[in-house]
């Protein structure tokens, strides 16, 4: 479904690559976690996956289509949830979703139906007509996520979808992601919340200084490395005492 081949990104003016020759594949229906500290190369990889800028070398294939040559077709089948709250603060939650849904080409009635359904599922239907600037952090994160799934994409790309919110909201979001995945959506998500990743992901890759240092099923990796959990595995592999 998703194939990353020798992906490298060297930003202009930098000699060191931000992403250094990474290769991996994600099968249909997986929840794949790309884990690493801040500056490890997660967001750069994420940006190249959604075609925001091209790789220096290497390529990404989504549904056998190259991001270098077929980005327009790829964009129709992916949903993107950026790390920032990528919403218009002066518009209401509903207005934001109407706008992004229409930008994905959804018809008015279908869109209205999906917005209502999603808002109920995420428990924010009462706040639909409130302006985003008046939302709590958790509510903003939920709308930010809904905006990326309205068109029911084959692949959902999430960059730190639950960063900076309380544990309750985070659990809610994770539950919803599992439900979305069960409906057939392949998920790639970046995070530095290792416990969250351990519970959610079917497969993971640990990225450090632009390189993938380990990949596989979380349980298997933990076992192979004689660790108690993903967090201790991460610290062992990255030789870091804490994660930012």
């Amino acid at each position: 479904m998703i194939k990353i081949e020798n992906l490298t990104k060297i930003y202009k003016g930098n000699s060191e690559p931000a992403v250094n020759n990474i290769s991996l594949s994600v099968s249909k229906g997986e929840i794949f976690g790309l884990l690493g500290t801040n500056g490890a190369g997660k967001t750069t990889t994420f940006s190249m996956l959604c075609g925001l800028f091209p790789p220096t070398t290497g390529n990404v294939f989504i549904n056998n289509l190259s991001v270098r040559s077929h980005i327009s077709e790829i964009k129709k089948n992916i949903g993107v949830v950026p790390q920032n709250i990528a919403l218009y603060p002066t518009l209401t939650g509903k207005e934001n979703l109407m706008f992004f849904g229409k930008m994905y080409g959804l018809r008015k009635n279908t869109l209205k139906e999906r917005i209502n359904h999603s808002m109920i599922a995420f428990g924010i239907e009462k706040h639909a007509d409130k302006k985003i600037k008046n939302y709590s952090g958790g509510m903003k994160r939920r709308i930010n996520l809904i905006a990326g799934i309205l068109h029911e994409p084959d692949v959902l790309l999430l960059d730190e979808p639950a960063v900076g919110i309380d544990a309750h909201s985070r659990l809610d979001i994770m539950d919803q992601l599992k439900k979305i995945n069960k409906m057939g959506t392949t998920i790639i998500y970046t995070s530095h919340y290792l416990e969250e990743a351990e519970n959610l992901c079917t497969d993971i890759a640990i990225i450090d200084e632009g390189k993938i240092i380990s990949k596989g099923k979380p349980d298997k990796l933990i076992q192979e490395n004689n660790c108690d959990n993903l967090e201790s595995l991460f610290f062992k592999l990255t030789d870091k005492k804490h994660i930012d």
Binding site: L52, A86, M103
Partner: peptide, 11 residues
């Protein structure tokens, strides 16, 4: 605020 980023990932 990132909405431009989102727009650029859309068709």
């Amino acid at each position: 605020d990132g909405s431009f980023f989102r727009l650029m990932t859309m068709p």
